[in-house]
Simulated scan of single mutants.
Amino acid sequence: MTQRVELATVMDRLAVDGLVTEYAVAVDDGDWAAYRELFTPDGRADYRSAGGIEGDVGSVAAWLAENLRLFSMRQHLIVNRRVRFGVREQDAGDTARVGADYVNPMRLAGHGDEGGAPDFVCGGRYSFGLLRTYDGWRLREVVVEEKWRRLPTA
């Protein structure tokens, strides 16, 4: 690899990592306009393993906006990111796959919003499919594989 190719790969890794972080922030902050902007026009998300829906980004964003109002606090911690670049139409590096583990503590609205331990915690693995566009890297697919959850205790 030449230094130019290595530098481009590092820059792509930083951009992809930034996109995954922006995804987490948009969901945690309930910024559904920002969430939609992170995706390609044909982008899809699948939250079925966590009790959600699968569909186009607009439908999923609307579902998230409605259902996540149950929680006054959300904080995705997305770690162990594994990035693999792929090939699209003979151009290396125009697609990427990211596998990343997550832990997501959430507080139920109206249940001790002043602080303390979260009421609900879940964890699992994300699979992100990304595409390089003229506007930069965008999400084409998000699949959640929830592996565990801890519910509130009485």
Score class of each variant (00 low, 15 high):
Val144Leu: 10
Ala62Ile: 02
Leu151Asn: 07
Pro41Arg: 10
Cys122Ile: 13
Val20Arg: 08
Thr2Lys: 00
Gln75Trp: 13
Gly55Ser: 01
Trp32Met: 01
Leu38Ala: 11
Val121Glu: 03
His76Leu: 07
Val10Tyr: 14
Ala34Ile: 01
Gly99Lys: 11
Ile53Leu: 06
Arg150His: 13
Tyr23Ala: 14
Val20Glu: 11
Asp113Thr: 05
Val57Gln: 12
Leu151Gln: 11
Asp28Glu: 06
Ala92Ile: 14
Met1Phe: 06
Asp42Phe: 08
Arg48Asp: 07
Ala45Gly: 13
Val25His: 15
Gly30His: 01
Glu146Ser: 14
Met106Asn: 13
His76Arg: 11
Leu64Arg: 09
Ala92Phe: 12
Gly124Val: 06
Ala65Gly: 08
Ser127Pro: 12
Trp148His: 06
Thr2Pro: 00
Ala8Val: 13
Asn104Lys: 03
Phe120Cys: 14
Gly18Tyr: 13
Ala96Thr: 07
Asp42Glu: 09
Met73Arg: 05
Ala100Asp: 09
Cys122Pro: 11
Gly99Phe: 10
Val16Met: 09
Lys147Ile: 00
Val79Thr: 04
Arg4Lys: 00
Ile53Asp: 05
Tyr23Glu: 14
Arg4Leu: 01
Leu19Ser: 11
Val79Arg: 03
Thr153Arg: 15
Glu89Met: 00
Val57Leu: 07
Leu64Ala: 12
Arg36Met: 01
Ala92Leu: 12
Ala8Pro: 12
Pro152Met: 03
Glu146Gly: 12
Glu66Ser: 15
Val10Asn: 14
Asp113Pro: 02
Asp29Gly: 00
Trp148Val: 06
Gly112His: 09
Thr153Asp: 15
Leu64Trp: 08
Val83Ser: 04
Gly115Trp: 12
Thr133Gly: 03
Ser127Val: 15
Asn67Cys: 05
Ala62Phe: 03
Met106Asp: 08
Trp137Phe: 02
Trp148Glu: 08
Thr2Tyr: 00
Asp119Ala: 11
Tyr102Leu: 13
Glu145Cys: 09
Asp12Val: 14
Ile53Trp: 06
Arg97Leu: 13
Leu38Ser: 12
Arg81Val: 08
Gly52Met: 14
Arg97Phe: 06
Arg125Ala: 02
Arg132Val: 10
Ala15Ser: 14
